[in-house]
Amino acid sequence: MTRYRLQTSPDKAALAHAAAAAMAAVIRNAATRQPRCVMALAGGSTPEAAYGHLGQEDLPWERVELVLGDERWVDVQDPASNARMVRHRLLSGSRAHRARLHPVATHLPNPEAAARAYGDLLQTLCPGQPPRLDLALLGLGDDGHTASLFPGTAAVNVEDEWVTVGLGKGLPRVSMTAPLLSAARQVIILVAGAAKRQALERLLDPQEDPARTPAKLVAPKGEVLVLCDEAAVSVG
Results as ranks from 00 to 15, higher is better:
residue 8 T to M: 13
residue 221 K to D: 05
residue 170 G to L: 04
residue 175 S to A: 13
residue 92 S to C: 06
residue 158 V to G: 03
residue 111 P to V: 03
residue 134 D to Y: 06
residue 128 G to P: 02
residue 51 Y to D: 05
residue 142 D to M: 02
residue 79 P to T: 13
residue 67 V to F: 04
residue 195 A to R: 15
residue 121 L to M: 12
residue 21 A to L: 14
residue 228 C to R: 03
residue 51 Y to P: 07
residue 222 G to M: 12
residue 81 S to W: 14
residue 225 L to D: 07
residue 86 V to N: 00
residue 117 A to N: 14
residue 229 D to P: 13
residue 119 G to Q: 10
residue 63 R to P: 12
residue 172 P to H: 13
residue 120 D to G: 06
residue 126 C to D: 02
residue 121 L to T: 08
residue 52 G to Y: 09
residue 26 V to Y: 10
residue 23 M to A: 07
residue 2 T to L: 03
residue 140 L to Q: 11
residue 176 M to T: 01
residue 160 D to W: 03
residue 222 G to F: 00
residue 88 H to D: 10
residue 189 I to T: 13
residue 212 R to G: 10
residue 1 M to I: 08
residue 229 D to M: 09
residue 26 V to Q: 09
residue 87 R to A: 04
residue 25 A to Y: 00
residue 215 A to R: 03
residue 203 L to S: 12
residue 89 R to D: 05
residue 141 G to Y: 04
residue 130 P to T: 15
residue 79 P to E: 15
residue 129 Q to W: 04
residue 35 P to D: 15
residue 16 A to G: 13
residue 133 L to N: 07
residue 154 A to C: 01
residue 123 Q to K: 06
residue 14 A to I: 04
residue 8 T to K: 01
residue 231 A to W: 10
residue 97 H to P: 13
residue 155 A to I: 00
residue 68 L to A: 09
residue 141 G to P: 06
residue 179 P to K: 14
residue 186 Q to W: 08
residue 162 W to N: 05
residue 226 V to S: 15
residue 139 G to Q: 08
residue 223 E to A: 15
residue 71 E to M: 10
residue 73 W to Q: 07
residue 49 A to S: 13
residue 122 L to P: 00
residue 126 C to Y: 02
residue 126 C to P: 01
residue 107 H to Q: 00
residue 183 A to V: 02
residue 203 L to D: 08
residue 81 S to T: 11
residue 50 A to I: 04
residue 38 V to N: 05
residue 23 M to H: 00
residue 41 L to R: 00
residue 149 L to T: 08
residue 153 T to N: 03
residue 89 R to A: 12
residue 196 K to Y: 02
residue 213 T to E: 07
residue 229 D to Q: 09
residue 190 L to E: 08
residue 216 K to G: 13
residue 36 R to W: 05
residue 2 T to V: 14
residue 208 E to I: 05
residue 70 D to N: 13
residue 122 L to T: 03
residue 196 K to V: 11
residue 157 N to V: 00
residue 155 A to R: 11
residue 196 K to T: 10
residue 6 L to N: 14
residue 111 P to F: 06
residue 170 G to R: 01
residue 57 E to M: 13
residue 69 G to M: 01
residue 232 A to C: 12
residue 109 P to L: 02
residue 187 V to A: 12
residue 52 G to M: 04
residue 189 I to K: 03
residue 134 D to G: 01
residue 55 G to R: 06
residue 5 R to F: 00
residue 120 D to I: 08
residue 196 K to M: 10
residue 98 R to C: 04
residue 140 L to A: 14
residue 230 E to F: 05
residue 103 P to R: 00
residue 29 N to A: 14
residue 49 A to W: 08
residue 94 S to D: 04
residue 36 R to N: 02
residue 72 R to F: 06
residue 191 V to C: 06
residue 19 A to Y: 13
residue 72 R to E: 09
residue 60 P to H: 14
residue 57 E to H: 15
residue 145 H to D: 14
residue 75 D to F: 11
residue 158 V to T: 05
residue 35 P to W: 14
residue 51 Y to L: 15
residue 63 R to M: 03
residue 168 G to T: 05
residue 6 L to S: 15
residue 206 P to G: 10
residue 167 L to G: 01
residue 207 Q to R: 12
residue 3 R to S: 13
residue 113 A to F: 09
residue 140 L to C: 04
residue 97 H to L: 00
residue 12 K to C: 07
residue 53 H to F: 12
residue 228 C to W: 03
residue 210 P to S: 07
residue 13 A to P: 12
residue 157 N to G: 05
residue 87 R to E: 02
